[in-house]
Simulated scan of single mutants.
Amino acid sequence: MPPLEAPDDRLQQAMKLVLLATLPGLLALFWFYGWGLLINLILSASTALVVEAGITRLRRQPLRPTLSDGSALVSATLLAAALPPYCPWWLTVVAIASGLLFGKHLYGGVGKNPFNPAMLGFALAIVMFSQPMTQWPVHGMSLLDAVQQVFNPRQAPDAWVQATALDTLRINKSLTIDELFAANPAFGQFGGHGVEWVNLAFLVGGLFLLQRRVFGWHAPVGMLASLFLVSLLCWNGSGSDSHGSPVFHLLSGATMLGAFFIITEPVSGAKSALARLLFGVGVGLLTYLIRTWGGYPDGVAFAVLLMNLCVPALERFAVSRQARTTP
């Protein structure tokens, strides 16, 4: 009989698999946006390790278990993938530091956080620094130019930055969907330009994690199904008042990143199968509502944080339902 793995060993193995599964999405991001993603990753990861080490020292705990469990690197990687490439260096540092401090260590560290640290850092960044958080590049730049743009931010040329497809659709009042896809460079074949392929790449990574049983199917299926259904019910074709097709919503923004890498986080998410399914459904519905009628173009981060608050109620509902159905 093989020896049982300690909880820390299981956590470390799960974090390694999650990091491995992000590679297709990260490579797609690098293909479309270039060196900015790599700089984001380095800044985010190094800041996360410094914050983890500093807090661990303040608590007078051993460094090695905290730094080696991989949870901080996973949060740093997911946040770096969500931030705009070539955003100022201080924005990345502030986002990951605040996410770990206020979303994790304020409540006692790994295993005790009620909120997803990466999404909390992202939400704080977009609320406090809305302008740089909306400057998404059309394409990449050379490594030297990328370093200069990140560490010595200058006004980016209008031809190089653009609003995302979700943001463009949200404020559109006159053009039809067909006209937007034909004339606006932010749109690709089915979703956002480039972002549609990034979403498909994160879908591949998410299916890998499902196959390895790192998490169950309930939360991802709940989120994607509810987002698809509500966007289908509210879709009115290609008119100027259209909110986008179901496929557009599935392949735009951080949909697949959220479905397979964010809402499946075991600590801040739900635990029981029914609660996980309802958690995913809630995230999908809120994502659509925020995208369509909210003040921010992509509602995944805010939807996740709002549903984090609902986890205790979802768990109580799941327990009471199981008690009623058990003979």
Results as ranks from 00 to 15, higher is better:
residue 177 I to R: 09
residue 119 M to P: 03
residue 101 L to D: 01
residue 198 V to S: 03
residue 124 L to F: 13
residue 57 R to S: 14
residue 168 T to C: 05
residue 187 F to V: 05
residue 73 L to Q: 11
residue 107 Y to Q: 10
residue 99 G to V: 01
residue 313 A to T: 11
residue 80 A to H: 02
residue 101 L to G: 02
residue 214 V to S: 04
residue 21 A to R: 00
residue 167 D to Y: 03
residue 240 S to W: 08
residue 80 A to W: 01
residue 25 G to A: 09
residue 219 A to W: 03
residue 314 L to T: 09
residue 84 P to A: 14
residue 125 A to Q: 03
residue 316 R to Y: 07
residue 266 P to L: 14
residue 71 S to R: 01
residue 298 D to R: 05
residue 187 F to D: 00
residue 236 N to I: 11
residue 172 N to Y: 02
residue 90 W to I: 13
residue 80 A to L: 06
residue 35 W to H: 14
residue 226 S to R: 02
residue 146 A to I: 02
residue 32 F to Q: 13
residue 292 T to H: 04
residue 115 F to A: 05
residue 289 L to Q: 10
residue 22 T to Q: 06
residue 226 S to I: 08
residue 242 S to M: 09
residue 162 Q to F: 05
residue 166 L to G: 00
residue 287 T to P: 02
residue 22 T to M: 10
residue 214 V to T: 09
residue 175 L to F: 09
residue 34 G to T: 10
residue 8 D to H: 14
residue 48 A to T: 04
residue 41 L to E: 09
residue 264 T to R: 03
residue 245 S to D: 06
residue 107 Y to R: 10
residue 250 L to F: 08
residue 300 V to S: 04
residue 319 V to Y: 10
residue 128 M to H: 03
residue 256 M to N: 05
residue 178 D to G: 14
residue 221 V to D: 02
residue 169 L to F: 05
residue 57 R to T: 14
residue 255 T to M: 15
residue 208 F to Q: 03
residue 190 F to C: 08
residue 217 W to M: 11
residue 209 L to W: 01
residue 260 F to L: 05
residue 266 P to T: 12
residue 87 C to Q: 06
residue 311 V to F: 09
residue 96 I to C: 04
residue 192 G to P: 01
residue 3 P to E: 12
residue 300 V to C: 07
residue 43 L to R: 07
residue 170 R to P: 03
residue 122 F to I: 13
residue 114 P to F: 12
residue 248 F to Q: 02
residue 219 A to E: 05
residue 144 L to I: 13
residue 46 S to Q: 10
residue 324 R to F: 07
residue 211 Q to Y: 15
residue 163 A to W: 02
residue 311 V to G: 09
residue 155 Q to P: 01
residue 284 G to M: 10
residue 201 A to Y: 01
residue 99 G to R: 00
residue 232 L to E: 07
residue 191 G to M: 04
residue 309 L to V: 14
residue 197 W to C: 06
residue 293 W to F: 15
residue 234 C to L: 15
residue 85 P to Y: 07
residue 32 F to L: 09
residue 284 G to Y: 06
residue 85 P to S: 12
residue 312 P to K: 10
residue 30 F to Q: 10
residue 147 V to R: 07
residue 66 T to V: 14
residue 236 N to T: 15
residue 279 F to A: 09
residue 258 G to P: 06
residue 212 R to L: 12
residue 201 A to C: 10
residue 81 A to H: 02
residue 180 L to M: 11
residue 191 G to F: 02
residue 231 S to N: 06
residue 300 V to Q: 03
residue 75 S to P: 00
residue 63 L to Y: 07
residue 295 G to Y: 06
residue 146 A to R: 00
residue 208 F to N: 02
residue 129 F to T: 04
residue 49 L to N: 00
residue 262 I to G: 05
residue 251 L to Y: 03
residue 311 V to I: 12
residue 18 V to E: 07
